[in-house]
Nucleic acid binder design. Structure first.
Lengths: 167, 167
DNA sequence: TTAAAGTTTCAAAAATTATTGAAATTTTAA
DNA sequence: TTAAAATTTCAATAATTTTTGAAACTTTAA
Protein backbone atom coordinates (compact mmCIF):
# COMPACT_ATOMS: atom_id res chain seq x y z
CA UNK A 1 0.00 0.00 0.00
CA UNK A 2 1.52 3.33 -1.05
CA UNK A 3 0.96 6.78 0.42
CA UNK A 4 -2.01 7.71 -1.77
CA UNK A 5 -3.80 4.44 -1.11
CA UNK A 6 -3.16 4.64 2.60
CA UNK A 7 -4.34 8.24 2.75
CA UNK A 8 -7.54 7.47 0.88
CA UNK A 9 -8.21 4.42 2.98
CA UNK A 10 -7.79 6.42 6.15
CA UNK A 11 -10.00 9.28 4.97
CA UNK A 12 -12.79 7.04 3.80
CA UNK A 13 -12.66 4.89 6.92
CA UNK A 14 -12.75 7.91 9.17
CA UNK A 15 -15.57 9.28 7.03
CA UNK A 16 -17.86 6.31 7.37
CA UNK A 17 -16.99 6.00 11.03
CA UNK A 18 -18.09 9.58 11.55
CA UNK A 19 -21.73 8.73 11.11
CA UNK A 20 -21.28 6.37 14.04
CA UNK A 21 -20.18 9.03 16.47
CA UNK A 22 -22.78 11.47 15.25
CA UNK A 23 -21.19 13.63 12.57
CA UNK A 24 -21.70 13.42 8.84
CA UNK A 25 -19.38 11.93 6.26
CA UNK A 26 -18.02 15.15 4.82
CA UNK A 27 -17.31 16.56 8.23
CA UNK A 28 -15.45 13.45 9.31
CA UNK A 29 -13.49 13.33 6.05
CA UNK A 30 -12.43 16.94 6.34
CA UNK A 31 -11.29 16.21 9.83
CA UNK A 32 -9.34 13.14 8.69
CA UNK A 33 -7.68 15.11 5.94
CA UNK A 34 -6.59 17.88 8.27
CA UNK A 35 -5.43 15.41 10.88
CA UNK A 36 -2.84 13.88 8.58
CA UNK A 37 -1.87 17.02 6.74
CA UNK A 38 1.49 18.50 7.84
CA UNK A 39 0.44 21.92 6.51
CA UNK A 40 -2.78 23.78 7.12
CA UNK A 41 -5.13 23.72 4.12
CA UNK A 42 -7.30 26.30 2.40
CA UNK A 43 -10.94 25.74 1.59
CA UNK A 44 -9.94 25.26 -2.06
CA UNK A 45 -7.47 22.57 -1.07
CA UNK A 46 -10.14 20.72 0.88
CA UNK A 47 -12.80 21.02 -1.83
CA UNK A 48 -10.39 19.70 -4.40
CA UNK A 49 -9.02 16.87 -2.33
CA UNK A 50 -12.41 15.55 -1.23
CA UNK A 51 -14.47 16.56 -4.27
CA UNK A 52 -17.03 18.50 -2.33
CA UNK A 53 -18.71 21.83 -3.01
CA UNK A 54 -17.76 25.14 -1.50
CA UNK A 55 -20.93 25.33 0.57
CA UNK A 56 -20.40 21.89 1.95
CA UNK A 57 -16.82 22.65 2.90
CA UNK A 58 -17.77 25.94 4.51
CA UNK A 59 -20.59 24.48 6.62
CA UNK A 60 -18.67 21.49 7.81
CA UNK A 61 -15.54 23.45 8.64
CA UNK A 62 -17.66 25.72 10.74
CA UNK A 63 -19.09 22.73 12.60
CA UNK A 64 -15.64 21.29 13.19
CA UNK A 65 -14.63 24.64 14.66
CA UNK A 66 -17.76 24.58 16.86
CA UNK A 67 -16.61 21.20 18.13
CA UNK A 68 -13.30 22.81 18.99
CA UNK A 69 -11.19 20.38 16.98
CA UNK A 70 -10.38 22.47 13.91
CA UNK A 71 -8.85 25.94 13.91
CA UNK A 72 -8.69 28.80 11.46
CA UNK A 73 -5.29 30.24 10.66
CA UNK A 74 -4.26 33.31 8.76
CA UNK A 75 -1.04 33.37 6.82
CA UNK A 76 0.54 36.79 6.61
CA UNK A 77 0.24 38.41 3.23
CA UNK A 78 -2.52 35.94 2.26
CA UNK A 79 -6.16 36.76 2.13
CA UNK A 80 -7.37 33.16 2.19
CA UNK A 81 -8.12 31.35 5.42
CA UNK A 82 -6.31 28.17 6.27
CA UNK A 83 -7.50 25.35 8.49
CA UNK A 84 -5.73 22.91 10.72
CA UNK A 85 -6.81 20.19 13.11
CA UNK A 86 -6.00 19.52 16.71
CA UNK A 87 -3.19 17.02 16.28
CA UNK A 88 -2.86 15.60 19.75
CA UNK A 89 -5.19 12.61 19.89
CA UNK A 90 -5.55 12.83 23.68
CA UNK A 91 -6.69 16.39 23.35
CA UNK A 92 -8.96 15.41 20.47
CA UNK A 93 -10.62 12.69 22.55
CA UNK A 94 -11.03 15.07 25.46
CA UNK A 95 -12.69 17.66 23.29
CA UNK A 96 -15.02 15.17 21.63
CA UNK A 97 -15.99 13.62 24.95
CA UNK A 98 -16.66 17.03 26.40
CA UNK A 99 -18.86 18.07 23.49
CA UNK A 100 -20.81 14.83 23.40
CA UNK A 101 -21.42 15.11 27.09
CA UNK A 102 -22.72 18.63 26.69
CA UNK A 103 -24.86 17.99 23.62
CA UNK A 104 -26.28 14.56 24.33
CA UNK A 105 -25.58 13.16 27.73
CA UNK A 106 -26.47 16.13 29.89
CA UNK A 107 -29.88 16.76 28.27
CA UNK A 108 -30.62 13.05 28.63
CA UNK A 109 -29.63 13.06 32.29
CA UNK A 110 -32.02 15.91 32.89
CA UNK A 111 -34.92 14.04 31.30
CA UNK A 112 -34.10 10.80 33.10
CA UNK A 113 -34.12 12.73 36.31
CA UNK A 114 -37.53 14.28 35.57
CA UNK A 115 -39.04 10.98 34.50
CA UNK A 116 -37.67 9.01 37.43
CA UNK A 117 -39.19 11.49 39.84
CA UNK A 118 -42.84 11.12 38.91
CA UNK A 119 -45.01 10.21 41.84
CA UNK A 120 -45.28 6.57 42.77
CA UNK A 121 -48.89 5.35 42.34
CA UNK A 122 -48.48 1.78 43.45
CA UNK A 123 -48.92 0.18 40.01
CA UNK A 124 -46.34 -2.22 38.58
CA UNK A 125 -45.81 -0.22 35.45
CA UNK A 126 -45.08 2.97 37.35
CA UNK A 127 -42.72 1.11 39.66
CA UNK A 128 -40.87 -0.33 36.71
CA UNK A 129 -40.62 3.01 34.91
CA UNK A 130 -39.20 4.66 38.02
CA UNK A 131 -36.83 1.81 38.74
CA UNK A 132 -35.39 1.63 35.24
CA UNK A 133 -35.06 5.33 34.65
CA UNK A 134 -33.36 5.71 38.04
CA UNK A 135 -30.86 3.01 37.07
CA UNK A 136 -30.23 4.66 33.70
CA UNK A 137 -29.86 8.01 35.40
CA UNK A 138 -27.20 6.69 37.71
CA UNK A 139 -25.33 5.04 34.86
CA UNK A 140 -25.53 8.18 32.73
CA UNK A 141 -24.07 10.25 35.56
CA UNK A 142 -21.17 7.84 35.91
CA UNK A 143 -20.56 7.98 32.18
CA UNK A 144 -20.71 11.75 32.26
CA UNK A 145 -18.04 11.89 34.93
CA UNK A 146 -15.87 9.50 32.94
CA UNK A 147 -16.21 11.56 29.80
CA UNK A 148 -15.42 14.85 31.48
CA UNK A 149 -12.87 13.82 34.04
CA UNK A 150 -11.11 10.76 32.76
CA UNK A 151 -10.92 10.85 28.96
CA UNK A 152 -7.83 12.56 27.64
CA UNK A 153 -7.16 14.37 30.88
CA UNK A 154 -3.61 15.08 31.93
CA UNK A 155 -4.13 12.36 34.53
CA UNK A 156 -3.73 9.81 31.82
CA UNK A 157 -1.91 7.57 34.29
CA UNK A 158 -5.39 6.47 35.35
CA UNK A 159 -6.09 5.03 31.95
CA UNK A 160 -2.70 3.37 31.80
CA UNK A 161 -3.09 1.86 35.24
CA UNK A 162 -6.58 0.67 34.37
CA UNK A 163 -5.46 -0.95 31.16
CA UNK A 164 -2.65 -2.76 32.92
CA UNK A 165 -5.05 -3.90 35.57
CA UNK A 166 -7.64 -5.48 33.32
CA UNK A 167 -5.78 -6.40 30.13
CA UNK B 1 -46.05 14.70 35.05
CA UNK B 2 -48.23 11.58 35.17
CA UNK B 3 -47.36 8.04 34.12
CA UNK B 4 -48.43 8.39 30.48
CA UNK B 5 -46.52 11.63 30.00
CA UNK B 6 -43.43 10.24 31.66
CA UNK B 7 -43.56 7.05 29.61
CA UNK B 8 -43.93 8.95 26.35
CA UNK B 9 -41.17 11.34 27.27
CA UNK B 10 -38.84 8.49 28.06
CA UNK B 11 -39.66 6.57 24.88
CA UNK B 12 -39.23 9.55 22.62
CA UNK B 13 -36.03 10.66 24.32
CA UNK B 14 -34.55 7.20 24.08
CA UNK B 15 -35.71 7.08 20.46
CA UNK B 16 -33.96 10.22 19.34
CA UNK B 17 -30.92 9.28 21.36
CA UNK B 18 -30.74 6.01 19.48
CA UNK B 19 -29.59 7.66 16.29
CA UNK B 20 -26.65 8.93 18.30
CA UNK B 21 -25.40 5.54 19.28
CA UNK B 22 -26.00 4.10 15.87
CA UNK B 23 -29.45 2.52 15.84
CA UNK B 24 -32.59 3.87 14.26
CA UNK B 25 -35.49 5.56 15.99
CA UNK B 26 -37.96 2.70 15.86
CA UNK B 27 -35.41 0.26 17.16
CA UNK B 28 -34.51 2.50 20.07
CA UNK B 29 -38.17 3.16 20.87
CA UNK B 30 -39.02 -0.52 20.89
CA UNK B 31 -36.14 -1.04 23.23
CA UNK B 32 -37.28 1.77 25.51
CA UNK B 33 -40.80 0.37 25.61
CA UNK B 34 -39.63 -3.11 26.53
CA UNK B 35 -37.21 -1.77 29.09
CA UNK B 36 -39.95 -0.17 31.16
CA UNK B 37 -42.60 -2.79 30.58
CA UNK B 38 -43.13 -5.14 33.54
CA UNK B 39 -44.62 -7.77 31.21
CA UNK B 40 -43.25 -9.06 27.94
CA UNK B 41 -45.08 -7.68 24.91
CA UNK B 42 -46.36 -9.20 21.68
CA UNK B 43 -45.62 -7.72 18.29
CA UNK B 44 -49.22 -6.41 18.20
CA UNK B 45 -48.71 -4.66 21.52
CA UNK B 46 -45.58 -2.97 20.22
CA UNK B 47 -47.11 -1.95 16.89
CA UNK B 48 -50.07 -0.45 18.65
CA UNK B 49 -48.15 1.33 21.36
CA UNK B 50 -45.63 2.93 19.00
CA UNK B 51 -47.86 3.26 15.90
CA UNK B 52 -45.52 1.38 13.61
CA UNK B 53 -46.17 -1.22 10.95
CA UNK B 54 -45.81 -4.95 11.33
CA UNK B 55 -42.79 -5.08 9.03
CA UNK B 56 -41.04 -2.34 10.90
CA UNK B 57 -41.65 -4.04 14.23
CA UNK B 58 -40.48 -7.38 12.92
CA UNK B 59 -37.24 -6.07 11.43
CA UNK B 60 -36.27 -3.97 14.39
CA UNK B 61 -37.07 -6.67 16.94
CA UNK B 62 -34.81 -8.97 15.02
CA UNK B 63 -32.01 -6.41 15.14
CA UNK B 64 -32.47 -5.92 18.87
CA UNK B 65 -32.17 -9.66 19.28
CA UNK B 66 -29.00 -9.62 17.16
CA UNK B 67 -27.61 -7.03 19.55
CA UNK B 68 -28.38 -9.44 22.36
CA UNK B 69 -30.52 -7.01 24.35
CA UNK B 70 -34.02 -8.28 23.54
CA UNK B 71 -35.27 -11.83 23.92
CA UNK B 72 -38.11 -13.84 22.50
CA UNK B 73 -40.38 -15.62 24.94
CA UNK B 74 -43.10 -18.16 24.41
CA UNK B 75 -46.05 -18.27 26.73
CA UNK B 76 -47.48 -21.74 27.14
CA UNK B 77 -50.74 -22.27 25.33
CA UNK B 78 -50.11 -19.14 23.21
CA UNK B 79 -49.03 -19.14 19.63
CA UNK B 80 -47.85 -15.54 19.60
CA UNK B 81 -44.30 -14.64 20.45
CA UNK B 82 -43.57 -12.24 23.25
CA UNK B 83 -40.57 -10.00 23.65
CA UNK B 84 -38.70 -8.69 26.64
CA UNK B 85 -35.60 -6.60 27.16
CA UNK B 86 -32.51 -7.16 29.20
CA UNK B 87 -33.46 -5.27 32.35
CA UNK B 88 -30.15 -4.98 34.14
CA UNK B 89 -28.59 -1.75 32.92
CA UNK B 90 -25.05 -2.96 33.71
CA UNK B 91 -25.63 -6.00 31.56
CA UNK B 92 -27.20 -3.80 28.89
CA UNK B 93 -24.17 -1.52 28.81
CA UNK B 94 -21.85 -4.49 28.66
CA UNK B 95 -23.70 -5.99 25.74
CA UNK B 96 -23.85 -2.72 23.83
CA UNK B 97 -20.17 -2.00 24.43
CA UNK B 98 -19.26 -5.50 23.28
CA UNK B 99 -21.29 -5.21 20.08
CA UNK B 100 -20.01 -1.75 19.22
CA UNK B 101 -16.49 -2.94 19.74
CA UNK B 102 -17.06 -5.89 17.43
CA UNK B 103 -18.92 -3.97 14.73
CA UNK B 104 -17.06 -0.70 14.62
CA UNK B 105 -13.97 -0.50 16.71
CA UNK B 106 -12.26 -3.71 15.74
CA UNK B 107 -12.57 -3.17 11.98
CA UNK B 108 -11.24 0.34 12.49
CA UNK B 109 -8.30 -0.91 14.51
CA UNK B 110 -7.42 -3.29 11.71
CA UNK B 111 -7.41 -0.50 9.13
CA UNK B 112 -5.45 1.88 11.36
CA UNK B 113 -2.90 -0.86 11.78
CA UNK B 114 -2.61 -1.42 8.03
CA UNK B 115 -2.37 2.27 7.26
CA UNK B 116 0.17 3.01 9.98
CA UNK B 117 2.43 0.28 8.64
CA UNK B 118 3.03 1.63 5.14
CA UNK B 119 6.68 2.08 4.33
CA UNK B 120 8.32 5.29 5.40
CA UNK B 121 9.52 7.25 2.36
CA UNK B 122 11.07 10.23 4.08
CA UNK B 123 8.42 12.78 3.08
CA UNK B 124 6.67 14.92 5.66
CA UNK B 125 3.22 13.85 4.60
CA UNK B 126 4.04 10.17 4.94
CA UNK B 127 5.63 10.78 8.33
CA UNK B 128 2.53 12.61 9.50
CA UNK B 129 0.17 9.93 8.21
CA UNK B 130 2.11 7.23 10.01
CA UNK B 131 2.45 9.22 13.20
CA UNK B 132 -1.21 10.11 13.46
CA UNK B 133 -2.60 6.74 12.52
CA UNK B 134 -0.25 5.08 15.02
CA UNK B 135 -1.52 7.40 17.75
CA UNK B 136 -5.14 6.70 16.81
CA UNK B 137 -4.40 2.98 16.71
CA UNK B 138 -3.05 3.04 20.22
CA UNK B 139 -5.99 5.03 21.49
CA UNK B 140 -8.48 2.75 19.75
CA UNK B 141 -6.87 -0.30 21.35
CA UNK B 142 -7.16 1.29 24.78
CA UNK B 143 -10.79 2.11 24.14
CA UNK B 144 -11.41 -1.42 22.96
CA UNK B 145 -10.01 -2.85 26.17
CA UNK B 146 -12.15 -0.47 28.19
CA UNK B 147 -15.28 -1.43 26.31
CA UNK B 148 -14.71 -5.15 26.63
CA UNK B 149 -13.15 -5.40 30.03
CA UNK B 150 -14.35 -2.50 32.09
CA UNK B 151 -17.88 -1.57 31.03
CA UNK B 152 -20.57 -3.42 32.94
CA UNK B 153 -18.23 -6.15 34.06
CA UNK B 154 -18.75 -7.83 37.41
CA UNK B 155 -15.67 -5.92 38.54
CA UNK B 156 -17.79 -2.85 38.79
CA UNK B 157 -15.80 -1.83 41.86
CA UNK B 158 -13.33 -0.41 39.35
CA UNK B 159 -15.86 2.05 38.07
CA UNK B 160 -16.95 2.99 41.55
CA UNK B 161 -13.39 3.50 42.72
CA UNK B 162 -12.64 5.54 39.64
CA UNK B 163 -15.66 7.77 40.09
CA UNK B 164 -14.78 8.40 43.71
CA UNK B 165 -11.24 9.18 42.71
CA UNK B 166 -11.99 11.83 40.11
CA UNK B 167 -15.40 13.23 41.04
C1' DT C 1 -14.66 54.49 -2.21
C1' DT C 2 -14.50 50.47 -5.39
C1' DA C 3 -14.09 45.97 -6.94
C1' DA C 4 -11.92 41.67 -6.60
C1' DA C 5 -11.20 37.78 -3.55
C1' DG C 6 -13.05 35.06 -0.32
C1' DT C 7 -16.80 33.23 2.62
C1' DT C 8 -21.43 32.24 4.11
C1' DT C 9 -26.18 31.28 3.52
C1' DC C 10 -30.02 28.74 2.09
C1' DA C 11 -33.57 26.98 -1.18
C1' DA C 12 -33.64 23.26 -4.30
C1' DA C 13 -31.95 18.73 -5.73
C1' DA C 14 -29.81 14.44 -4.75
C1' DA C 15 -28.73 10.76 -1.89
C1' DT C 16 -29.59 8.03 1.84
C1' DT C 17 -32.26 5.78 5.27
C1' DA C 18 -36.55 4.25 7.35
C1' DT C 19 -41.22 2.64 6.91
C1' DT C 20 -45.11 0.55 4.94
C1' DG C 21 -48.05 -3.09 3.53
C1' DA C 22 -49.10 -6.95 1.04
C1' DA C 23 -47.41 -11.36 -0.65
C1' DA C 24 -44.67 -15.27 0.69
C1' DT C 25 -43.28 -18.19 4.21
C1' DT C 26 -43.41 -20.62 8.53
C1' DT C 27 -45.60 -22.65 12.41
C1' DT C 28 -48.95 -25.24 14.83
C1' DA C 29 -53.50 -26.95 16.28
C1' DA C 30 -56.94 -29.88 14.88
C1' DT D 1 -52.77 -33.06 5.79
C1' DT D 2 -55.13 -28.54 6.03
C1' DA D 3 -55.88 -23.96 7.10
C1' DA D 4 -55.69 -20.34 10.36
C1' DA D 5 -52.44 -17.62 12.93
C1' DA D 6 -48.27 -15.47 13.11
C1' DT D 7 -44.03 -13.80 11.21
C1' DT D 8 -40.76 -12.44 7.66
C1' DT D 9 -39.41 -10.45 3.43
C1' DC D 10 -38.85 -6.91 0.21
C1' DA D 11 -40.20 -3.65 -3.51
C1' DA D 12 -42.33 0.67 -3.41
C1' DT D 13 -42.94 4.93 -0.96
C1' DA D 14 -42.05 8.32 2.48
C1' DA D 15 -39.14 10.87 5.42
C1' DT D 16 -34.87 12.61 6.53
C1' DT D 17 -30.33 14.12 5.78
C1' DT D 18 -26.71 15.77 2.94
C1' DT D 19 -24.97 18.30 -0.84
C1' DT D 20 -24.95 21.64 -4.32
C1' DG D 21 -24.47 26.07 -6.40
C1' DA D 22 -25.52 30.60 -7.02
C1' DA D 23 -26.75 34.90 -4.74
C1' DA D 24 -25.71 37.68 -0.80
C1' DC D 25 -22.49 39.15 2.15
C1' DT D 26 -17.81 40.41 4.06
C1' DT D 27 -13.18 41.75 3.88
C1' DT D 28 -9.30 44.07 2.16
C1' DA D 29 -5.96 46.05 -1.21
C1' DA D 30 -5.47 49.76 -4.07
Amino acid sequence: MNYEEAKNKFISTWGSLGSLWGINKAMAQIHALLLISPESLSMEDIMEELHISRGNASMNLRQLMDWGIVFKENKIGERKEYFSSEKDVQELAKQIAKERSRRELQPTIKILNDVSNISEDGTDKTKELIKQTKALHEMAETLDIMMNKVVGQGNNWITKALVKLVK
